Computed example of a mutant assay.
Amino acid sequence: MDEPRDPAQAQDEIELAVEGALRPASLAEFVGQHKVRAQMQLLLEAAAMQDRPADHILLSGPPGLGKTTLAMIVAHESGRPLRLSSGPAIQHAGDLAALLSSLTPGEVLFIDEIHRMARSAEEMLYLAMEDFRIDIMVGKGAGATSIPLDLAPFTLVGATTRAGLLPNPLRDRFGFTAHLEYYEPDELEKVVERSATMLGVGVPAHARAEIARRSRGTPRIANRLLRRVRDYALVHGGADRASTGPRGGPTATQADVNAALELYDVDRIGLDRLDRAVLDALVHRFRGGPVGLSTLAVSVGEEGETIESVVEPYLVRIGFMGRTPRGRIATPDAYAHLGARHPESVLGLHDL
């Protein structure tokens, strides 16, 4: 008898399936990252004309900007199969050897968070990328023997959110390195428009702009907010709007967008509950800082890595948080957003 499924796990699987369905299948459908798209198009066309696997590709940048999608597009436009893996899953050289030796000629291997691979696996990857060969050690001690194993030519697409953690010998073996930038609001509007059509929800231009404005420059967040707006419109829209969108789906108004995002604690510039908790602690509990990352994380009940990788990049990008040798500080803009008075304003230091 099958065990009952965890509702949270089932919901996560549904979200992943929907996110996968919204991914563009070609560079022509991919919105934004114009320079990277043009560079990759040239790379893939040159490889196709010479009937060879494309050069190895390294994609870096914050989460949610399309690194996995671009890897899938490389495989699709090359007409090659795609193998998916991740750095945390490759913790021994043997793990990588088993993966590489099973690749078919021309296959595209995608390794997400490649900077988190074990060091022994990284060193094995050097030779595999350059000469399509690995050395397998058999035996131990003085009797150990190295056996070379030839690999089928392949294309490695590595993705990382922290390119600085990659060792130089590994980074230098990629034939093409691209850094993905945050999206502009007009680009995110196009993402929302395309996704809304695929989801069968009608979203007027002003409502699309509002979703884009709160999406933190990230398509993944834009699609997630769109799905929540769709759900709100479906539940609260009433019979008059329940089937007026594309494919008989609901139509979401500006009021639906505002109400849905307020319900999910996403404010007018895209800050969520955790973002505001961090800012509130920094401003009120620590008087603007400086404060250490670990102390800040404990004060809001989160892991330091979560604060550093999820919350901090956006707060620094929009000028609400600063990083100093002594710790994190809140800027005057952060005080203004929370409706608090900055100490310099109280003391009149801004007039000096």
Rank of each mutant, 00 (worst) to 15 (best):
Q254I: 14
L338W: 02
L274T: 07
Y335V: 02
G66T: 00
V18F: 04
L42Q: 14
V191C: 02
A46G: 09
A8T: 11
N168W: 06
Y183L: 14
L43D: 12
F286L: 06
R326N: 15
E302Y: 10
K190L: 11
P148A: 06
P219D: 03
S78T: 11
P204G: 00
I307A: 13
S78C: 11
T177I: 10
L16F: 14
P148R: 04
K67H: 01
V310Y: 12
L261T: 15
M49C: 03
V191L: 03
R5K: 12
H337R: 03
D2G: 11
L156F: 03
R285A: 14
L149Y: 10
D55N: 10
V298E: 13
P167V: 09
Y335C: 08
Q91I: 10
F132W: 14
Q50I: 03
R273M: 06
R285F: 05
S26A: 00
A38C: 04
A205K: 11
M124N: 13
D272F: 05
A28V: 02
T331L: 06
L100Y: 01
E13W: 09
L58N: 09
R37L: 14
F154Q: 00
R273E: 13
Y314T: 06
G301L: 00
T161M: 02
E312H: 05
R276A: 03
G238W: 05
E187Q: 08
P153Q: 02
A98C: 01
N223K: 02
S215A: 14
G270K: 14
A152M: 10
L27G: 00
D131G: 09
Y183H: 05
E262C: 07
E130P: 01
R173I: 13
A48R: 08
I211R: 01
E305K: 15
M40P: 01
P63I: 07
E303I: 08
